[in-house]
């Protein structure tokens, strides 16, 4: 019996073409991506038939979690005059002024270092009385992690309150801290932002679909009391047939 000779074939697969394709794909994703910003609460927005897209800059996002905690995110122009960092320092100054007017016995004051830290924050949301302590965390080792944990309420210190305090009282002379922040934002020097707030697209409420109406109503009512009657809800896309 003669042995069958099997020809030796190389199993080498040329990966060059594959590599070309993957690099192209990679370039595409790198150029189109806008990173998801980390938020203190993860919410699923309800679907709606509305087709208006959210604008990219010049709006304030009010994040509401199902328990009724509130965090704010400012999205300013990228221009030098009204960049996020500059506007945030101005905002902190303004809100301090409004807060100290209402709490004359317990005024708060921020150092330049604290203001600088605040200007670098993404979302923010702690009571004014604790904001100084919160901003000081940035100087400590692993400060960012500690701040994130404080914001989403997972740190173990029961004294640390996360979320901007809000109340159900409808009184223009007795503002809740949430109203103070919103009022300060409305007085911003960025005219593009204030225009957007006037026509309603400058304030976007982002809440989970299962949030109870009671929570949403409190937020809407607070805004109504300071005469910010127009605002938008962030929603997800829904097909017309649904």
């Amino acid at each position: 019996m003669g042995r069958v000779k099997i020809a030796k074939k190389s199993t080498f697969i040329d990966m060059t073409a594959m590599s070309d394709v993957t690099v192209l794909l990679l370039t595409f994703f790198m150029l189109t991506s806008t990173f998801l910003s980390k938020e203190p609460a993860t919410v699923i927005t309800p679907p709606s038939v509305s087709e208006d897209k959210v604008q990219e800059t010049n709006y304030v996002q009010v994040l509401v979690n199902p328990e009724g905690k509130i965090w704010l995110t400012m999205n300013n122009d990228t221009s030098a005059d009204f960049g996020n960092e500059k506007m945030k320092i101005a905002l902190l100054d303004k809100v301090t002024e409004i807060y100290n007017e209402a709490h004359k016995s317990k005024p708060v004051k921020f150092t330049d270092q604290q203001k600088y830290t605040f200007s670098k924050l993404g979302s923010f949301g702690v009571p004014m009385s604790q904001l100084g302590e919160f901003l000081n965390l940035a100087q400590e080792p692993e400060g960012q992690t500690k701040m994130d944990k404080w914001l989403d309420g997972t740190d173990d210190n029961p004294k640390h309150i996360s979320g901007i305090p809000i109340s159900k009282v409808q009184d223009e002379n007795n503002l809740s801290e949430f109203q103070m922040w919103m009022k300060a934002i409305r007085q911003s020097d960025n005219s593009k932002l204030t225009d957007k707030i006037k026509d309603g697209s400058g304030v976007a409420i982002k809440a989970d679909q299962n949030t109870s109406f009671e929570v949403i109503h409190t937020v809407m009512d607070n805004l109504q009391t300071i005469r910010m009657n127009k605002f938008t809800f962030l929603t997800a896309l829904k097909g017309a047939s649904e």
């Binding site: 590599s19 998801l36 809407m220 605002f231 938008t232 809800f233």
Partner: peptide, 26 residues
Amino acid sequence: NMLLITFFMLCTTMIKSQTLTIALPT
């Protein structure tokens, strides 16, 4: 490259949120 693509695909938001504007009385 595949790993990098996977990373970028998972990190991106392709869908922008929609908005619904409402006006309430004072």
